[in-house]
Simulated scan of single mutants.
Amino acid sequence: MPERPVGGSPTIGIVGLGRLGSALRSVCRDHGTRVTLTASRRGGWSVEEVPDVLVDASAPGAHAEVLDYCATHRVPLVACVSNLADTQWKALEGLAEKVPVVRATNLSFAHYLQVRIAEFTAALTAGGPGATTTVRERHPLGKAHRPSATALALADTWARASGRAVADVADERAGLPVSEHELTHTWDGESLHVRHHVGSWTVPARGALAAAGWARAASPGLVTMRTVYGDLTARSTT
């Protein structure tokens, strides 16, 4: 939970200027948020001043340099790279002992709602007729890995909440940007589909900016976007 109130918008550092990083840069410009650091494979690191929060939207190859920068300058990190090796996940946990780290498998607010619905459904159906539950995800051609990290996280959420593993995780590579993730529960003669569709990179970029604002005032530790959105929605209702 954030403990150090900080006024105003945080300054942002963006590592990786691909689709997400470029969208975040545009969102920061639209919101009047200063971007004081950018880094890319072609352009290298450009630092106007140390940012309040660093958002890593790059690739596993930049991970060590990102973690070293955050540790050296005590900068909170929003980690958006999902296809990391086990040793890299461990290193992320190590960084979280020093600074706040948000592990952002999926940055969308509606995905947060999808996760909460999955947990709610698991609680409501406990002890009732068992459903067959599956996860389906779709990304355009060129998606780096499959199944997506979000699909695997959805399957894990359901397994932890219900005590029952999903029957299948299906992946598809086709169609338009950006993604679809669907959780389906099937009983005898009926089914329930909870589908989340994202059609613009502006959506996760806004989520990254929200996570950066949260992390700026947080204590060291490793959290997910579930914690970030849970805290932000709780504060908005008080």
Rank of each mutant, 00 (worst) to 15 (best):
T36F: 15
T36K: 08
L37K: 12
L37Q: 09
T38A: 13
A39C: 13
S40Q: 15
R41S: 11
R41I: 10
R42P: 04
R42N: 15
G43M: 07
W45G: 14
S46Q: 15
S46L: 13
S46W: 13
V47L: 14
E48A: 14
V50M: 08
D52A: 09
L54F: 02
L54Q: 03
A57N: 05
S58H: 01
A59C: 10
P60K: 06
G61D: 01
G61K: 01
A62T: 06
A62H: 02
A62S: 14
H63Q: 08
E65M: 15
L67N: 11
L67R: 03
Y69L: 09
Y69M: 07
C70Q: 03
A71Y: 04
A71W: 01
R74C: 11
R74Y: 08
V75I: 11
V75M: 07
V75C: 06
P76N: 12
P76H: 06
L77T: 03
L77F: 06
L77E: 04
V78W: 00
V78C: 06
V78L: 10
A79Y: 00
A79S: 11
C80L: 13
C80S: 09
V81G: 05
S82A: 11
N83H: 15
N83T: 08
A85H: 04
A85V: 02
A85Q: 09
A85G: 06
D86N: 06
D86S: 12
Q88E: 08
K90E: 15
A91H: 12
L92T: 04
E93K: 13
E93F: 13
G94T: 10
L95I: 05
A96D: 15
A96Y: 00
A96H: 05
E97K: 05
E97H: 11
K98V: 09
K98R: 09
V99D: 05
V99W: 03
P100S: 05
P100Q: 03
V101N: 03
R103A: 01
A104V: 01
A104L: 06
N106Y: 10
L107E: 01
S108H: 07
S108I: 02
A110G: 11
A110S: 08
A110P: 02
H111P: 06
Y112K: 03
L113I: 07
L113V: 07
Q114I: 01
Q114M: 03
V115I: 07
